[in-house]
Amino acid sequence: MQKSKIHYWLALKLVPRLAIHKKLTLVESYGLTALFSSSVKNNPSLTSANNLTAKQLASFYQPDWQKIDDIISSSDRCRSEIIVFDDPVYPQLLKQIYDPPLVLFVQGNTKLLNQTQLAIVGSRSASINGRETAFEIAQQLVKNGLVVTSGLALGIDAAAHKGALTTCASTIAVVATGLDKIYPARHRDLVATILEKEGAIISEFLPGTSPKPGHFPKRNRIISGLSVGVLVVEAALQSGSLITARCALEQNRDVFSIPSGINNPQAKGCHWLIKQGAKLVEESADIMDELAFIDNFDSQLKPQHKPQLFINKEIDEKRSNKDLFVDELLASVGFEITPVDKVVSRSKLPVEEVLTRLTILELNGLVAAVPGGYLRLHK
């Protein structure tokens, strides 16, 4: 049976422990299908120039095509489309980020992927005021032609999706599971409504994938990567929403934040973002003004930067330098729940630096943000 482009991108996705930007560089250097040809096995330059392990090389010259066929069949069964990196439907803004997913699984309206999106995120244990605010702002934003993107979580995410659903074809939910699973399960009706109203549910995770702590930071980078900006409605200082905000800053996206009462613990993260320079938002017009989309708004994608297919060497080297200091902070996080102040005390680093480094560790799946602090995931 002849292999499709989807087969080859899935084969590349399945190559173990090889960073996405390195996989894309290999495609640029050798060509996608050529990477999986018989000549790869006897190509010494591929091994020496890219430091590939024996297991990684085996994934190139002996792909598990049966497993890939099973993935495609599973995707068909849960009525999702497979959108690969070089597909015209693939979101162009998402290609700008450092580690764009090679493959997206999409249920629903794929036309939304390249429409202009604003992410709304916040606390799972949001206050009633926070949920109402997220609902109302989402409702106003979609009336102005934006698509609201969020993570299908409890609290602010759900309220944002529901506010957007007052208009059809208006919301995207990015999830941290395979599309054959719904998490949290209580959002089964919300998922059905999103699809009925021409929204979309997307994931980079294979069908059958269950929710795991390390998946959520990966999902968050997609939420911000799809969007021209991120609005944080309510967030504690240890909130995963701050990871999305920091991803947005790394991706050169706008960050917006809604202030609240000084005694509201769910406002601490929002206030911290504002102190760091996030745009203070009181109403949707504050966002529309900042994006300069009020007068002649076109709902089609208008990226401020030319999408880049491959990451340049300067960014790659900067990431490598960051990796040099990750391990020393990782030693300060225990396999039991470790509060941030304990990590600060153990590492003797400024709290801002600790939060930034914890974000990097979380994005790499080494720690997980949990109620009360962080949890180490790997030895």
Rank of each mutant, 00 (worst) to 15 (best):
Lys3Ala: 09
Leu12Ser: 04
Val15His: 13
Val15Asp: 12
Arg17Asp: 14
Lys22Glu: 01
Lys22Asn: 02
Ser29Glu: 13
Leu32Gln: 10
Phe36Gly: 09
Ser38Val: 13
Asn43Phe: 09
Thr47Glu: 15
Ser48Tyr: 10
Leu52Asn: 10
Gln56Arg: 11
Leu57Ala: 13
Ala58Asp: 14
Gln62His: 10
Asp64Ser: 03
Asp64Val: 08
Trp65Pro: 05
Gln66Pro: 14
Asp69Glu: 05
Ser75Asn: 05
Arg79His: 14
Ile82Pro: 04
Leu113Cys: 03
Arg124Glu: 00
Ser127Trp: 04
Ile128Phe: 09
Ile128Thr: 14
Leu141Ser: 00
Lys143Glu: 02
Asn144Trp: 05
Asn144Leu: 04
Ser150His: 13
Leu152Ile: 03
Gly155Gln: 01
Asp157Gln: 05
His161Tyr: 11
Gly163Asp: 06
Thr167Asp: 06
Cys168Met: 15
Ser170Gly: 12
Ile172Gly: 01
Val174Pro: 07
Asp180Ile: 03
Lys181Tyr: 03
Lys181Thr: 02
Ala192Ser: 14
Thr193Trp: 15
Ala200Trp: 04
Pro207Thr: 04
Pro211Gln: 06
Gly214Glu: 10
Lys218Asp: 15
Leu231Asp: 06
Ala235Val: 00
Ala236His: 01
Leu237Phe: 00
Ser241Val: 01
Thr244Glu: 09
Arg253Phe: 07
His271Glu: 07
His271Phe: 03
Ile274Thr: 02
Ile274Gln: 01
Ser284Val: 11
Ile287Ala: 09
Met288Ile: 11
Ile294Tyr: 05
Ile294Cys: 12
Ile311His: 14
Glu314Lys: 11
Asp316Pro: 04
Ser320His: 14
Lys322Ile: 12
Asp323Gln: 11
Leu324Arg: 05
Leu324Phe: 05
Glu328Phe: 05
Ile337Asn: 14
Pro339Lys: 03
Pro339Asn: 00
Asp341Glu: 15
Val343Asn: 11
Val343His: 04
Arg346Leu: 12
Val351Ala: 12
Glu353Cys: 11
Thr356Gln: 04
Thr359Asn: 06
Leu361Lys: 09
Glu362Cys: 08
Val370Arg: 09
Arg376Asn: 02
